[in-house]
Design a protein around this nucleic acid. Structure first.
Lengths: 218, 218
DNA sequence: AGAACTGACTTTACACTGACAACTTGACAC
DNA sequence: GTGTCAAGTTGTCAGTGTAAAGTCAGTTCT
């Protein structure tokens, strides 16, 4: 019952494959889990299917993650790790706070599209252990990038701004976009409109959001 | 294999309970399903548990809904029906388009809190049949209220506005809020801040969104 | 009235699942 | 070597979704 929460070490890089010890089974299992979720959706997730794909026995995952919740929690943590990294990288060289906020929006949704399985799991309190310290820490780390940037926007233009509220709105908008985007595409198809791509949605959203945030000056 | 999609008729109101025929089993099953999802979360949903709560055999749901997806789809349709109704009622007596938009935000999130199970299901393409005509129709009906209102806001103030984009943003923000709210509460608790209640979030969100929408005049 | 039909369920059956306990395998320390 | 321990295995159990066949009650036809 090891508590392995998303250690990113690719230890024992060349795994001979017939070996009894896998080398890095936890990561392989996370990968397989992400695969299953991406293909079949979280609603048809199965621990045994994950084990099968990783080429180990059905009980092997339990050894590393305890139970299903353990594995999914670990996946969520990895998702937050990725996100925090992407956001940090995306904002790195940018001075203007507003440009940074746009970059964050882009980074958030980009991460969501690149790791759809992770993102489907990150806020699902019913399948994840929200009290896990690793989970909370990683989430906090990612969120901090956003709050800091919103704060900077407010400070740079001397705005009358509830930073927390504005940050939560940006976050909600991007999360909602991630969840509803397929639905939006379908609706536009049905209406005969050309599909608006994700990039365009992000840009449009952030523009309106920034206008809203900037609206009230001291 | 009846295709019973959320008929709201409370037919045979007084059901003697020992009768062989239930009276309105489809509705009872939807209710039980909502209960299970609310209590245990969609991740621990079980068709047999639903049947147990409705007091029927485990195979009874199949007769009305085919399979799990069928039942959950029906629940989603009912959710959209509720939502469309609430939004229509909420905007009924209001003339000012902006006030109407605020009322919609309030109505949306209120519905989400009142029917959490329905809302957890409505956009989950992996557990719901998105091609179901009833599903699409009900969704369209609810969405139309929002788009119309956003259009009215734009027209009233002669704004340079991509109506579809703005509507999608409002929708995303509210959906995101629904999904992330528990997380926001936990974070504020952890930071020692007083919990911001949902009402306040909605008001704050809509204020910023409206400011953003109004920002660009012709 | 009785017979035939149909919809609403129940019973039975099966393959699959998550979780647990008990066992085996390999690697490393001494 | 022996001991130890993490990393897997096999086996088992109750619970699950779905399909098929059986049973019951009400309606309709004659």
């Amino acid at each position: 019952m090891t508590s392995d929460t998303a250690t990113t070490n690719a230890a024992a890089a060349a795994a001979p494959a017939e070996r009894y010890h896998h080398g890095d089974l936890p990561n392989a299992l996370r990968g397989a889990a992400a695969e299953v979720i991406t293909e079949k959706g979280l609603g048809h997730f199965s621990l045994r299917e994950v084990a099968r794909r990783a080429g180990v026995s059905h009980a092997a995952p339990a050894h590393h993650f305890g139970d299903t919740t353990g594995l999914l929690t670990s996946l969520a943590v990895q998702g937050f790790d990725h996100l925090a990294q992407v956001l940090a990288d995306a904002t790195a060289g940018i001075d203007d706070p507003e440009d940074r906020l746009v970059a964050i929006g882009r980074g958030y949704v980009e991460t969501g599209m690149r790791y759809p399985a992770h993102c489907q799991v990150m806020f699902r309190a019913d399948v994840v252990d929200c009290d896990d310290p690793g989970y909370q820490e990683a989430g906090e780390r990612a969120y901090a990038v956003l709050v800091d940037t919103v704060r900077a926007v407010g400070a740079a233009e001397n705005l009358d701004l509830d930073v927390d509220m504005a940050a939560d709105l940006c976050w909600s908008a991007m999360q909602g976009l991630l969840e509803l985007y397929p639905n939006m595409v379908r609706r536009r198809e049905a209406s005969g409109l050309p599909p608006r791509d994700l990039e365009e949605s992000i840009t449009g959203f952030t523009r309106i959001l920034l206008d809203g945030i900037r609206a009230r000056r001291d």
